[in-house]
Design a protein around this nucleic acid. Structure first.
Lengths: 132, 132
DNA sequence: TGAATGTACGACTAAAAAGGTCGGATTTTC
DNA sequence: GAAAATCCGACCTTTTTAGTCGTACATTCA
């Protein structure tokens, strides 16, 4: 429970690589090698980050990615949602499907806690995570 | 990712039941029925809560559980750790086993984020979750 | 123009975690 | 001693996660 998934970890490693390098384009393959991550998965994560404006993709022979957004403007909440799709504490909060239906006694408390957690994740930027 | 697991949900429902009732002992079976949760799993969760001092177990014919601790003194962090065993964001933080070993580029950032998250969960009491 | 390089996307398989069940032992009260 | 309840370990099923494969498309450059 409560674990980061691999895609988010790969995304963090990739972003760290970009943040620490000079502003040259880096291919998905190079990122995968530098971060010791599976190439295919890394490629997908980078594509997702690119489609959401965190990275900028450049085609062609010497193509690749580069940072497109200031990491102080990207929150942990943003990253999780972009890479993983959801940060909700329970499925019922997004899917509206719950086994308990009307019988659930804790929907309000869970919504309450969920909001607190999301606000918390929104308050932390990726830059802040890197610079301790 | 980032989902509460069922055991924690069952624990929350059980605690809510105790918090809202009068201070009589309630059997695991009754709790399971009241919360529409699987009896066996509920029984285990209650046992765990009992062994950690959140509930008090009473044996015998009319035995069961009752609250043993003020819920304003129990944090979400406590509950997650008691019921689920860990709140760490990554396995490597507790198990010391990591596929990347020395090659991990984000161990420090992850530790950093992990501490923030845990402090956050420590700052929220169960009572606070119930009373919006 | 076509070969090289890289992005983009869907389908599939394997591994891991979560959720739940079964059976039985122990403890206490009546 | 019987009944009611807590306690504990092992097992199975389902779901989620992680990773791979194959293929199509876009762009650059010789």
């Amino acid at each position: 429970m409560n674990k980061l998934n691999k895609k988010v970890e790969y995304a963090l490693m990739a972003l760290k690589h970009f943040a620490e390098g000079d502003d040259t384009t880096v291919s998905a393959k190079d990122i995968a090698e530098a971060t010791h991550s599976p190439a295919e998965v890394t490629a997908r994560v980078l594509q997702t980050l690119s489609s959401h404006g965190i990275l900028k993709a450049e085609y062609g022979l010497h193509g690749g990615y580069r940072l497109a957004k200031d990491l102080s403007k990207v929150s942990v909440y943003d990253l999780m949602n972009i890479v993983d799709g959801s940060t909700d504490l329970a499925k019922c909060l997004s899917d509206k499907e719950c086994d308990l239906l009307k019988n659930c006694t804790i929907i309000t408390p869970v919504e309450n806690l969920n909001k607190k957690v999301q606000d918390f994740y929104k308050s932390i930027s990726i830059e802040e995570v890197f610079h301790v």
